[in-house]
């Protein structure tokens, strides 16, 4: 861990990334056989065709984190801090990040962040802040096992949620780095719209969550964009939280962003909360959809009701496919 003196402001860049999904694929046909629903209905209404169930939040985080470290050419020794965004930790005490720390051989700090589906973007902003204050490298992970918090007999929620993880390594740079602007927010008065008591299952007012989700995604995206001075037209890619294709379509149409500039993976992951944005981002990166200098908007919303957006100009590592 660096000394606690605060250096001149400096930026950060993403130097590696990775993902993890459990092995068990749960298709819509699984629910067709158990609940009063059909594959066609689920696909049309949500955009989800399958999701993954299993493993643990820590194990998924470790697998994704290890892949991100490998890509960055780093070992656990190099990492000053783990930030693990999760709303489905394995234990109430201690943080899930503590297990990740041990198993990845990291000697720096470790803590969980819970901002539900906005958690990864909250963590991304915090990582940049801590790097500006002197940390050199942060491992940021979004990991969830929402299947444990979902009543598999409840047609309203069972079909929607899945398990998974995505991770990025952020490293200090000598320049301003990649983060151009961000917006973090929350409306605690709406927290009852989507919640799960300790030891219980999630319940959700889907209609009201839908409406608020579209509204706050658009507002937050516009706030971040306005701060950068770039327009939605100039975005190469939008990486939205993957909850429901209809929320994504409704929000992106209001932002005037066509589907070919939107990263989506929810057809095969379902809603993985904190993991959804890194899963979609990594999928886009691995498929060469981001080039150096591109502007990328990350935007999430979730329980709380929380929201978060960030605009980055891609300065980081790119895989072979993009060159």
């Amino acid at each position: 861990m660096p000394a606690s003196t605060i250096p001149a402001p400096r930026g950060a860049t993403i130097s590696g990334w990775g993902t993890a999904l459990p092995d068990t694929v749960v298709t819509n046909a699984h629910y067709e056989a158990r609940l009063d629903t059909t594959d066609e209905w689920i696909t049309e209404r949500t955009g989800i065709r399958e999701r993954r169930h299993g493993s643990s939040t820590a194990q998924l985080a470790i697998e994704a984190g290890r892949a991100a470290l490998d890509m960055a050419g780093l070992t656990g020794d190099d990492i000053d801090l783990i930030l693990l965004a999760t709303t489905s930790p394995d234990y109430q005490i201690p943080s899930t990040a503590s297990q990740v720390q041990e198993e990845l051989g990291i000697r720096g700090g470790a803590c969980d962040i819970n901002a539900a589906c906005s958690g990864f973007v909250y963590g991304l902003v915090q990582a940049h802040g801590l790097i500006a204050m002197g940390l050199n490298r942060v491992l940021l992970i979004g990991a969830e096992t929402l299947s444990r918090l979902t009543d598999q007999e409840d047609r309203n929620t069972a079909i929607l949620f899945g398990d998974g993880a995505g991770a990025v390594v952020l490293e200090a740079t000598d320049d301003a780095g990649q983060l151009l602007a961000f917006d973090l927010g929350s409306d605690g008065s709406a927290r009852k719209l989507l919640d799960a008591p300790i030891g219980g299952y999630m319940q959700m007012n889907g209609k009201e969550v839908f409406r608020r989700a579209v509204t706050v995604m658009v507002q937050s995206a516009n706030t971040s964009l306005a701060a950068t001075g770039i327009s939605a037209d100039e975005l190469a890619l939008v990486v939205p939280h993957q909850a429901n294709i209809r929320i994504i379509e409704a929000a992106c149409s209001r932002l005037n962003v066509d589907a070919d500039r939107v990263a989506t993976v929810l057809a095969r992951t379902g809603n993985t909360s904190s993991a959804s944005i890194p899963l979609a981002l990594v999928d886009a990166l691995d498929n060469g959809r981001v080039k150096k200098g591109d502007h990328v908007l990350l935007v999430g919303f979730g329980a709380g009701m929380s929201w978060a957006s960030a605009v980055i100009r891609w300065t980081g590592h790119l895989p072979e496919v993009a060159s």
């Binding site: 209404r45 209609k207 409406r211 579209v214 209809r246 409704a250």
Partner: peptide, 11 residues
């Protein structure tokens, strides 16, 4: 139209 369609329409 389902309930979410109606929400979208009202928006």
């Amino acid at each position: 139209a389902d309930s979410l369609d109606l929400v979208e329409l009202v928006m």
